[in-house]
Design a binder for these strands. Structure first.
Length: 711
DNA sequence: AGCACGCCGACT
DNA sequence: GTCGGCGTGCTC
């Protein structure tokens, strides 16, 4: 009897492909095996997900080419997890498995580079416009030709590259990158200083005991730790030690890859050599070493951002998801998934506990924890800053009078100050008062940000920059007014009122590299800078010295959006900003300067009163039938032909209604990162009633699509 | 994601 | 007349 294997590939392909198994591989093939198989004109690396004897494929069946990494089979639990997530998110199964696999022994990649003639032409200034731009990029390092297809690089980068190649100024070469194998003996975790001094109060001790009990009994438990990051850290550490003591592994997820250094430091100081970091920026060799390290340690904590979820761990005893309300856990595309959902599924399948932790959790998690009796408060009094709400509706300047006074006294006392401003640049757009014209990016169709320091307009998506016009390009009006004050404007006003202040701006323009960021933060910690004016970028930094005055300008910003998560996002963001307020300093102050000083979300966020926020928000979700009381999907279609996309989306909406889903909104035009598309939003009582028709209807859709699911 | 096929604009 | 740009469809 002949044997067949279904293979999925780490490409944006929804389906599995059926191959016949050649005689010599009959004994080797099994689900989870990494193989090379012919696909189109080439061969591709893929993963066997099923072995069977029914050749149901419509087309001619080809043989599997060869087996890769025969000793590293992806275990069944990971295969299932990836499969379930791909079905929920209508994305590629194989794409998930790449995060689970060992790095392939050799990986070939095509790279474009400049030829000698190209370098001479560039140096001689012979290249202009797009050609010059791309040649300049290639002069620094090589890129994959696909990189130039992105609209952010150039309008038509691929064509420009082709032209450079035709002129003999650039070339492409296939580079074979091999990952050298090391022997296990060569791999050693780096030794670290153990810092055994950590304290645990009664609430945290009880929470940890509850988790350890679940591990001992081999049952799943989805707990929510609510408390400050310091308290969570000590509770986590206790849970981790307990789990390691049982000879089991811990998977520790944190939101962003940028936090890796801080997280590994904290874990290493508490756990020594038993902490291993896994993230997507590791090289093949580093990843291999890390995985070998995991294999050689009987019990360890494996930490990483969302992609670490797929690490095969045979002795997994506990999953921790820190900062669970951080939206970085949601990946919108290629493949789309919510790592928190995946983590819950993995814990349930493995019959182990999962700990979600935050000081401002999502209402979805909070509601679930309250319902299941697994809410574990580890907060203490005085952990979190309480902010004053300042009404700025009658103010004429950018900084409200009472805020100016607080800045004055803080400066006089030699204290550190942080101001958060949402927008970078001087103004978020220019407006012609005569005809209402707003200069937009021709490529992205969004209003251009105005930078006063060099009098230029810049697109915040594609970074294209141009000189600001002196008069209105449409009606010829004499002036264009700056509207929507940004970071530069606040900085300027601050320096005008307090000429002696040593202020530094912290946005993606000013601090581009890691070194620059660290330098500014060092100067702030040391006192060389005493006022830090930052965009939300600053709120995502680790190692910012706590300030005695933290002010957030216009925190109500997101509340105007018609998004069911707007209130939650606002609450979470505000609490994130206020974390920079030094709670150890009794004189420390926090300020929210807003035009909505009576808004319940802002009041709750200012007070750090999560319970108050939750009461309001869960009622809103219940009444309007939003998650966690319903399953919701946001489906986006992306491309150029708006009419075709709208037709496609309308068909989908009609199909969903026909399938018995009453709540379908749209199609409505959307814009994301400068791309245009249409979106529909569908709500259903349960996940099953939503996902089944959605998969069926999306199966034939060819355009680029994104699906974000909530429940 | 690649790669081939097929349709419209500017050129030796 | 063709060369070659990119929109569309397919890969077991």
């Amino acid at each position: 009897m002949s044997l067949f294997a279904d293979v999925v590939f780490p490409l944006p392909l929804p389906q599995a492909f059926t191959y016949s198994v050649p005689e010599q591989l009959r004994e080797t093939v099994r689900p989870g095996l990494q193989v090379r198989a012919p696909l189109g004109k080439k061969t591709a690396r893929g993963f066997i997900v099923r072995v069977h004897d029914q050749p149901l494929a419509p087309a001619a069946i080809k043989d599997i080419d060869s087996v890769l990494e025969a000793e590293r089979i992806i275990p069944a639990d990971i295969l299932d997890l990836a499969g379930r997530l791909s079905r929920r998110n209508h994305s590629s199964w194989g794409a998930f498995l790449r995060s689970a696999a060992w790095p392939a022994e050799s990986e070939s990649q095509t790279r474009a580079s400049l030829t000698e003639a190209g370098r001479r032409a560039l140096a001689g200034g012979e290249l202009s416009g797009e050609e010059g731009k791309i040649a300049a990029l290639l002069a620094v390092k090589t890129y994959s030709p696909a990189h130039f297809k992105k609209r952010t690089v150039a309008v038509n980068g691929a064509a420009v590259l082709a032209r450079l190649i035709r002129k003999g100024l650039a070339e492409t070469a296939v580079r074979e990158k091999t990952v050298r194998r090391r022997t296990a003996a060569a791999v050693r975790p780096s030794p670290v200083q153990l810092d055994l001094d950590f304290s645990l109060d009664e609430a945290a001790r009880r929470a940890a005991a509850r988790i350890d009990g679940a591990i001992a009994e081999g049952r799943t438990l989805s707990a929510l730790f609510v408390g400050s990051s310091a308290r969570r850290a000590s509770a986590y550490l206790q849970c981790i030690r307990d789990t390691l003591a049982r000879g089991r592994q811990v998977l520790f997820l944190y939101p962003e890859i940028g936090m890796s250094k801080a997280v590994s430091g904290a874990l290493a100081s508490g756990l020594g050599e038993r902490a291993v970091l896994l993230h997507s920026r590791l090289t093949g060799r580093e990843r291999q070493d890390a995985l070998r390290c995991v294999e050689s340690l009987p019990a360890a904590v494996i930490a990483g951002p969302r992609s670490a979820l797929f690490t095969p761990l045979p002795r997994l005893g506990l999953i921790i998801v820190d900062e669970e309300s951080d939206e970085s856990y949601v990946q919108a595309e290629n493949p789309a998934y919510d790592a928190r959902v995946g983590a819950r599924w993995r814990a349930a399948a493995a019959r182990i506990p999962i700990v979600l932790g935050s000081d401002a959790p999502t209402v979805e998690s909070y509601q679930r924890a309250v319902r299941d009796g697994s809410l574990l408060e580890i907060a203490g009094n005085g952990d979190s800053a309480v902010a004053v709400l300042l009404d700025d509706r009658r103010e004429r300047g950018l900084l409200a009078g009472p805020l100016v006074e607080r800045i004055r006294s803080s400066l006089a006392a030699g204290r550190r100050i942080i101001l958060f401003v949402r927008r970078k640049g001087f103004a978020s757009f220019l407006l012609c008062p005569r005809c209402g014209h707003v200069p937009r990016c021709p490529r992205c169709n969004i209003a251009l940000t105005y930078f006063q320091k060099n009098r230029r307009l810049q697109c915040r998506y594609c970074n294209e920059s141009r000189p600001a016009p002196g008069s209105c390009p449409r009606c010829g009006g004499r002036i264009l007014e700056p509207r929507g004050a940004g970071l530069e404007a606040v900085e300027e006003e601050l320096k005008r009122i307090f000429p002696g202040a040593r202020a530094a701006g912290f946005d993606s323009e000013r601090v581009r590299t890691r070194a620059e960021r660290e330098k500014v933060l060092e100067r702030f910690a040391g006192g060389a800078v005493n006022v830090l004016v930052g965009t939300p970028l600053l709120a995502h930094q680790a190692g910012v010295a706590p300030a005695s005055l933290v002010a957030v300008l216009n925190p109500e910003h997101g509340l105007g959006f018609s998004d069911f998560q707007a209130a939650q996002r606002t609450y979470v963001d505000i609490r994130r900003f206020l974390r920079f307020c030094d709670t150890a300093d009794p004189a420390a102050e926090a300020v929210l300067q807003t035009s909505l000083p009576d808004h319940p979300v802002l009041r709750a966020a200012a007070a750090g009163d999560y319970a108050a926020f939750y009461r309001e928000e869960i009622e809103f979700r219940r009444i309007l039938g939003y998650p966690p009381f319903a399953a919701l999907a946001e489906i986006g279609f992306w491309g150029r032909d708006a009419q075709a996309l709208t037709r496609l989306a309308a068909d989908l909406a009609a199909g969903l209604r026909e399938a018995g889903i009453p709540d379908v909104l749209g199609p409505s035009p959307v814009q994301s990162r400068g791309q245009r598309g249409v979106q529909i939003v569908a709500k259903a009582a349960t996940a099953e009633t939503l996902d089944e028709p959605l998969s069926r209807l999306l199966a034939g859709v060819r355009v680029r699509k994104t699906v974000v699911r909530f429940d």
